[in-house]
Simulated scan of single mutants.
Amino acid sequence: MMTPKFWLTIITINCALLTSSVIADDPCRYETTKGIIDLTSIGRTDGKPAYADKTPPASADYKYSYNPCKPFTELPNCIGVAACQVSADGKLSFSLGKQESVKWNPGSGLGSIPSITYTEGAKVVTVTLVCSADGSEDFDAMGENPINNYKFRLSHKCACWDGCGHTPPQPTTKSPGGGGGGGLGGGGAFVIILLVLAIVYFAGFASYYKFRQQKSGAELIPHRTFWVALPGYAKDGAVYVFRRVSGKGAESYNSV
C-alpha cells in the first residue's frame, strides 16, 4: 500500500537528486576567504582552446589542449570539452573532462597552491594554478602519470588570488548540447523542484485512487473540488485587492 510515508520518501529522494544536480562549481570563477580566482579572461570563446596541442616533455605520443572557463572542440572526438588528449598524428582525440565537471581546490595552509580538476569517467585532469606576479603566462602539459591521471600547470596573473577578480560570476548550468558551462540559478532550481513535486503529487494520488479505491476519470484528480474552485478563488481575491487599492470599497472576504 502506497502510504503517505512512501510518497514523502519519494519526494525527499527527488529533492536530493535535484539539489545535487544543480549545485556545481563555476568553471570560470572561484571565491573563498583567500580571495577570488577568475579565469574568465583567459578562456577563448570561439570554440578553440587557449592552449592547443602542447606536448609533454616525457612523451611525444600525445598532445594536450586546454581552455579555461569555456568549452572548445577538437575533432574528431573532443566536442564541447575543457581538456583534450590528441594523438601525435592528430587522427585521434579523447575528452579528458568537460567544464561542468570542474572542481576547485584552494589548497591548504599558508603558501599553498590552488588547483582545478576536470573529470571524464575514470580520467582526471588536475591543473595547478601558479601565480605569475610579473604578468608572464605559461602552460605546461606534463602528460599522464599514473594511468588516467593527467597533470597540467598554468602560470598566469589570473591564477593569483584577486589577480583578475573583477569579472561578474558566471552561471553554472549545463547547456542542452552538452557544451558545458553555464549555470542554473536559484529560481530555475526552484521551478524544477516545484514541477517534480507537482508530478509526484498528482501521479501518486492518481495511482492510489485508481489501484486502491478503483476510481477512474476525473475522480483520479487529487483534491478535485479545491482545484476546480481555485480559479474562482483567484478571481475573488483579485477583485477584493483591486477594490481595496482603488478605494471603491470591498465586500467581506472569506479565507479559503
Rank of each mutant, 00 (worst) to 15 (best):
L17R: 02
V22M: 11
I23D: 11
D25T: 09
D25Y: 15
D26N: 15
Y30N: 10
T33S: 13
K34T: 05
L39C: 04
S41N: 10
I42P: 04
R44P: 01
D46P: 10
D53I: 07
D53A: 09
P56Q: 01
A60E: 10
E74S: 10
P76I: 10
N77G: 00
G80H: 12
A82W: 11
A83Y: 05
A88Y: 11
D89Y: 10
K91M: 15
K91C: 04
S93M: 01
L96A: 02
L96P: 09
E100R: 15
V102Q: 03
G107D: 02
L110G: 04
I116S: 13
A122N: 12
V124H: 02
V125K: 02
T126V: 08
T128M: 06
S132H: 07
S132F: 06
S132V: 12
E137W: 01
F139I: 14
D140C: 06
K151D: 08
F152G: 02
H156T: 07
C158Y: 03
A159K: 01
A159C: 07
H166D: 13
P168S: 04
S175C: 07
S175H: 08
G179L: 08
G180W: 04
G181C: 15
G181R: 11
G181M: 14
L184H: 15
L184P: 09
G186S: 06
G186F: 11
L195T: 07
I199P: 00
I199F: 11
A206S: 08
K215D: 05
K215C: 03
G217P: 03
E219T: 00
E219I: 05
H223D: 12
T225M: 03
T225H: 05
F226D: 01
P231E: 02
Y233D: 01
K235S: 15
G237A: 13
V241R: 00
F242W: 12
S246L: 07
A250M: 07
Y253K: 04
